Simulated scan of single mutants.
Amino acid sequence: MLAYPLGDALYLNVTSGCTLACTFCPKIRDDDFTVGGFDLRLARNPDADEVWRAIQAVGLEGRSEVCFTGFGEPTRRLEVVLEIARRLRAAGARRIRLDTDGLANLREGRDVVAELAAAGVGAVSVSLNAPDAAAYARICPSRYGEAAYDAVKAFLRAAVGVIPDVAASAVAMPGVSEAACRAVAESLGARFRWRPYDRVGRIPSSAGSARVG
């Protein structure tokens, strides 16, 4: 599934590959790639034209936003994200958002934040997930170790300077302090989101749908 609607938003799933192996992720923990009834497991990475055809099949009319997210890190397909963002902006998408681990600059070896902003990305949500480098490396292990945490914070600082809406999120893992995570996020100039543990995607409510993942 490359483009999946939930509520009034459209979500784009451009890869199943990740930079991190987060301990709370259903993909890692349970081999479960399902969100909102949609199977997001991809057998291969799609190109920009394939993603665009999927967007057209679902439609943009009435969408409050289009968001790059899924069970992979979108910026691992950076050129696809940039191309699709440009097409979405040209097509009149109301809001283009990126959910990311914030490690693109470290992984790509350059600052990509300005490129995302220039392509039309107007909102980013960065997975902070911890109040310090040691906790981050434990919860979100990667080949970068504790160095990843400073890279995430640097990405947030850069994004605050050029992207209108910047959020830092943390999953409510046992033993992780909401207050401490919030303090880090706000010190970087980002607003903070505390996400429920063991829940992804949108959940139904009496008032409609609320995205929590």
Rank of each mutant, 00 (worst) to 15 (best):
Arg41Val: 01
Ser127Leu: 03
Ala43Trp: 04
Asp132Glu: 08
Leu78His: 09
Arg76His: 12
Thr69His: 09
Asp132Lys: 04
Glu108Tyr: 12
Cys18Pro: 15
Gly72Glu: 08
Gly189Asp: 05
Leu2Val: 06
Gly59Ser: 08
Gly36Glu: 03
Cys18Ile: 07
Val80Cys: 14
Leu6Pro: 01
Cys67Met: 13
Val14His: 05
Val113Phe: 00
Val200Asp: 02
Ala170Val: 09
Ile203Trp: 14
Ser187Asn: 15
Ala93Asn: 09
Ser127Gly: 13
Val212His: 02
Ile96Ala: 01
Phe155Arg: 10
Leu60Asn: 03
Asn105Val: 05
Gly7Arg: 00
Lys27His: 11
Arg63Ile: 12
Ser142Gln: 07
Ile84Met: 02
Cys181Asn: 09
Tyr4Met: 08
Arg44Gln: 08
Val112Asp: 01
Val81Asp: 00
Glu108His: 14
Phe192Thr: 11
Leu42Val: 09
Val124His: 11
Leu156Gln: 12
Glu65Asn: 08
Phe33Tyr: 15
Ala151Ser: 11
Ile139Cys: 03
Val212Phe: 06
Ala167Lys: 14
Glu115Arg: 09
Tyr136Lys: 10
Arg143Cys: 04
Thr15Gln: 15
Val176Leu: 12
Gly36His: 06
Ala93Ile: 06
Met173Trp: 15
Ala48Tyr: 02
Asp47Arg: 01
Ile139Arg: 13
Ala118Leu: 05
Ala90Thr: 06
Ser177Tyr: 02
Pro164Lys: 10
Gly109Lys: 06
Leu42Ala: 10
Asn129Lys: 08
Arg193Val: 13
Ala148Phe: 00
Arg157His: 07
Ser127Phe: 01
Ile96Asn: 01
Ala118Val: 07
Cys181Glu: 02
Val81Gly: 05
Ala118His: 04
Arg202Met: 14
Leu60Arg: 09
Phe68Gln: 03
Ala57Arg: 14
Ala3Pro: 05
Arg95Tyr: 01
Val171Asp: 01
Ala117Ile: 08
Ala3Tyr: 04
Ala180Gln: 12
Gly161Ala: 14
Val58Met: 03
Glu178His: 12
Ala9Asp: 15
Val212Asp: 05
Leu156Trp: 03
Met1Thr: 11
Leu88His: 09
Ile28Phe: 08
Ser187Thr: 13
Gly70Ile: 07
Leu188Val: 02
Ser125Thr: 13
Leu88Gly: 10
Gly70Asp: 00
Asp8Phe: 12
Thr15His: 12
Thr69Gly: 09
Phe24Ile: 07
Glu79Phe: 09
Ile55Trp: 03
Ile96Gly: 01
Ser169Asp: 10
Val112Tyr: 02
Ala54Cys: 04
Asp165Trp: 07
Ala190Asn: 06
Gly37Val: 14
Ile84Ser: 01
Gly102Ser: 10
Val66Leu: 10
Asp8Lys: 13
Glu146Thr: 13
Ser64Glu: 13
Glu83Met: 01
Lys27Thr: 12
Ala158Ser: 15
Arg107Val: 15
Ser187Pro: 10
